[in-house]
Amino acid sequence: MAEKSIVDKAKKIFENFLLRQGSRKTPERFSVIDELYALPQDEHIDVEGLFLRMRNKGYSISRATIYNTLDLLVECGLAVKHQFKDKVALYEQALTYKHHDHHVCNQCRKIREFSDERINLIKEAMGEEFSSAITSHSLVLYGDCQIPDCKNLKLV
């Protein structure tokens, strides 16, 4: 869960973004920030999960509002959107985002984050080889679950 000052900072950034865009500042949009930033920092959530979470807490909000707000949060740098293999889009908070890569289990669908300095060495080498200033990358590794009695395992 993000601390209050992080959430306040995110709301201020979003407010300024909406003003520059000429968009409305609605309570529903800001409630999406509250709920996204209430998640553990390494958690990823889809629109349906966020919708159910918010409905269970008594928010009156539509899926369309959540979709649109998440798009705006991605645009202004407050959320990161990921599209893993056959999964729906997943989002995570971005204000305190430190670049990381992902491992997705083919069996249980659990997403694990990792960082490895060797990837930056590869990125630099490829930048030199292609005469390119590499500014970002995305790496997702897929594998089969080897965790005994995995609670996330979905039997087919």
Rank of each mutant, 00 (worst) to 15 (best):
E92V: 06
I122E: 09
C150R: 03
R24W: 11
E128A: 04
S131L: 06
H103W: 14
L39Y: 09
K98M: 11
P27N: 09
H44N: 04
D149S: 15
L39R: 15
V80Q: 10
F30C: 07
V47P: 00
T65I: 07
K12E: 14
G77D: 07
L78V: 03
C76F: 10
R118M: 07
L39C: 15
V104T: 03
I6Q: 10
Y97C: 01
V88E: 06
S31N: 12
N16V: 02
T65V: 09
M1P: 07
Q83I: 08
I134E: 05
G127D: 04
M1E: 04
D71F: 07
V88K: 14
H44M: 11
Q146N: 12
Q107N: 12
L141H: 05
K151G: 01
S62G: 13
A10Y: 07
T69S: 07
E117V: 07
H99Q: 15
D86C: 01
A79L: 06
M1A: 14
S62L: 06
L18A: 01
L121G: 04
A133Q: 05
E48R: 11
D46P: 08
C105G: 11
V156G: 05
H99K: 15
K12L: 12
I33D: 03
A133K: 11
Q41V: 13
G143Y: 14
L90D: 00
L73Y: 14
K85Y: 15
K25F: 00
L139P: 14
E129H: 13
I13D: 09
K81L: 05
V7G: 01
Y59H: 14
R20M: 11
E35D: 10
C145P: 03
A94D: 08
V32I: 09
K154Q: 14
N16M: 00
S132T: 09
H103L: 12
L90A: 09
E35H: 12
L78K: 00
K154Y: 12
V7C: 03
D116R: 00
E113I: 14
E129S: 02
K12C: 08
K4N: 08
G22H: 06
H82D: 14
T26C: 01
K25M: 11
Q93M: 06
D42L: 09
N56Y: 08
E43A: 08
S138M: 08
G143C: 03
V47R: 12
S60L: 05
A64I: 08
L73M: 04
A89E: 12
L121Y: 13
E113A: 11
D42G: 06
Y142T: 12
I111S: 02
L90C: 09
F51I: 00
I45V: 15
N120L: 07
Q21I: 03
I119A: 04
K87G: 02
S115K: 11
K87V: 05
K25Q: 14
F14H: 08
S131V: 01
S136L: 01
R53P: 02
F30V: 02
V47M: 01
G58C: 02
N68L: 07
H82C: 03
D101G: 03
H44S: 05
